[in-house]
Design a protein around this nucleic acid. Structure first.
Lengths: 140, 140
DNA sequence: CGCCTAACGTTAGACTCTCTAACGTTAGGA
DNA sequence: TCCTAACGTTAGAGAGTCTAACGTTAGGCG
């Protein structure tokens, strides 16, 4: 039987989490903020429910994260005139700048995390990661 | 700028975490338990501090996890006669069986998580993971 | 020998992320 | 019209990581 890498993954992911918390926390942000701003930048405004589907963040957690982002002026909630249940969430100018800032932080996280791997190895690794994500996002 | 896989890793690791919680939780265990039992099986009895170093679990969290394992008879704490500060933590027979049981669960986790990858790809992936873990464990 | 520092086990608390359950409101189909 | 589903929200749980503090014990150094 092969060695069991599940706990290895969990440890590596813990390292990743640690670095994310560290790098993002130093500018008063956390992972959810980055995932949300990034989604808004690349895929445009959306209702909270749609945002949740895009980012994989639960609606219940989205509320708090958006409150934080909105209270700092990075994001704006406006009622959808076509559907009064919906809030349309959009980026402000500050939000766009913030996304850029967090993007740099994310890059630093990546650098630190993948430091021991060579360029081609990183390609391999992230490629495999993406396949795994793809699979588990659709198939559950 | 390259795509940022850090959040991809964090999402994949989240999936891993989810599966671990699910598979282990169904038999009343959690990740810490497996990591501890596994370390005791492969590297033998140890003081709590040494166990913490081996598993990467903080001493403060070790206390609770060992309480849980001890209350179910999987593990035994005995005072070290050579150093009265230390507890020597050892496996019971039940503990050894439990380790076996959780090992099977861990294998199931691995199967589910790495399902979309072929055999050689898994080798690549786990190899890279191990390198990352190695690096971040020593270098911090 | 006495002191001081370090290690040990423990308790308490914080934070991030994930996940479930419930609620009132609104849209839209039967 | 009624019923179901979607939407946003609140509350709470659990797992994992991490820091700070405390009393106890070992061991080195003066």
């Amino acid at each position: 039987m092969e060695e069991l890498p599940s706990w290895v993954l969990s440890q590596v992911s813990a390292q990743g989490h640690r670095i994310i918390v560290e790098k993002f926390g130093s500018v008063g942000a956390r992972g959810y903020h980055y995932r949300l701003l990034r989604s808004l930048v690349t895929d445009g405004p959306a209702s909270q429910a749609a945002l949740g589907r895009r980012t994989g963040i639960y609606l219940s957690d989205l509320v708090g994260a958006l409150n934080e982002l909105e209270s700092e002026g990075y994001v704006r909630r406006s009622p959808d005139p076509a559907d009064r249940r919906r809030n349309v969430v959009g980026l402000t100018d500050r939000g766009r700048a913030r996304a850029e800032e967090l993007s740099e932080r994310a890059h630093a996280v990546q650098e630190e995390l993948l430091a021991p791997l060579s360029g081609p190895e990183r390609e391999q690794f992230t490629g495999l990661l993406r396949r795994l994500l793809e699979h588990h996002r659709s198939g559950g």
